[in-house]
Design a protein around this nucleic acid. Structure first.
Length: 295
DNA sequence: AGTGGCACCTGTGTGC
DNA sequence: TGCACACAGGTGCCAC
């Protein structure tokens, strides 16, 4: 499921329910996620939630008794629900609150991660977070920063954008969308990206992620925000999942290829295989659907 | 250090 | 209807 916008939408959804509330009980399922669920998670019992933040696709929940790092994997989601409601299949974890409400973690494929960090330790120093690249929506994510990270990469720009050491939060869907809006062929090598193209990429990454957050994330198959409502950004996708359909800009059929085992969609006309030869070529603008449309 | 391949796991859709 | 297979939005580990 989740790319950065979905995680941000989820974070905002659970924040009001959790902040300032006491965790009166904790449920830990028996099945492992990416890692087995540590019994240390029970130490959150009796804690009060003080802060909720996001780093890349991770949610960081701070409490008076340590913190909790949450990753949703492919199919994970957090649900706000009355504690009295029975658990269902694939509910692996639950924080029961003093408000008689619960936050439940449900994850069909179990690629997610729940990590307890003891009180006094900095969750951001945990390895899963410390190795991450820059936040794309922060002001310090600039074309220069991106370009310096692309320089030595000999793999494709699409796979490089998805590499969380290069920049966090750009997953498979948004990598295709950003490259389409930037008029860059997904198989171009990262190190061949020009400064001008890096500037366009940075602008489009920020724009696409921001627009998607505003419309509640992307629903492809099973994404729901914490309120159970689906995201609507899927209505704004230009190329992802649209193989054979007409490009919204030029009408050429969208192509589908596989890179690193993942699906890529692009317009062979709008995204030429080679960098523009004219440095003074017309600026690459994104006219198609980029604006957030709430329902 | 960077890269490609594979692994983790379940559900769904497709073709035979 | 049943079966085999491919595929799905993420990430980490491994050998090279």
């Amino acid at each position: 499921m989740p790319e950065l916008p979905e995680v941000e939408v989820t974070k905002r959804g659970v924040a009001n329910v959790l902040l300032g509330h006491e965790i009166v009980d904790v449920f830990i399922g028996s099945q492992p996620l990416r890692q087995p669920l540590s019994p240390d998670l029970l130490k959150l019992k009796g804690a009060t939630v003080t802060k909720i933040a996001r780093r890349g696709k991770y949610i960081v929940l701070s409490t008076t008794q340590g913190s909790l790092i949450i990753h949703l994997g492919m199919t994970g989601h957090l649900q706000i629900i009355a504690t009295s409601e029975p658990r269902v299949k694939h509910d692996h974890f639950e924080l029961m609150l003093d408000s008689a409400m619960s936050v439940r973690y449900n994850d069909t494929r179990r690629f997610g991660l729940l990590l307890y960090v003891p009180e006094g330790e900095d969750p951001y120093q945990q390895k899963v977070l410390s190795v991450l690249g820059p936040e794309p929506l922060e002001a310090d994510f600039t074309p220069e920063v991106l370009l310096s990270r692309l320089k030595k990469r000999s793999c494709s720009i699409k796979q490089t954008l998805m590499n969380s050491h290069v920049v966090v939060g750009v997953g498979n869907i948004y990598a295709s969308e950003v490259l389409f809006l930037s008029h860059i062929h997904p198989e171009r090598l990262a190190r061949d990206i020009t400064p001008e193209e890096a500037a366009v990429l940075v602008r489009n990454i920020k724009e696409v992620l921001t627009a998607s957050i505003a419309s509640g994330g992307t629903t492809i198959r099973d994404f729901e925000g914490a309120d159970g409502k689906p995201g609507y950004f899927v209505q704004n996708l230009n190329v992802y999942g649209k193989a054979g359909e007409a490009c919204p800009v030029c009408g050429t059929a969208i192509e589908h290829i596989v890179q690193g085992g993942r699906s890529t969609y692009f317009c062979p006309h709008c995204q030429p295989r080679f960098a523009p030869t004219q440095p003074e070529g017309e600026p690459v603008q994104s006219q198609p659907k980029t604006k957030a449309k709430t329902k």
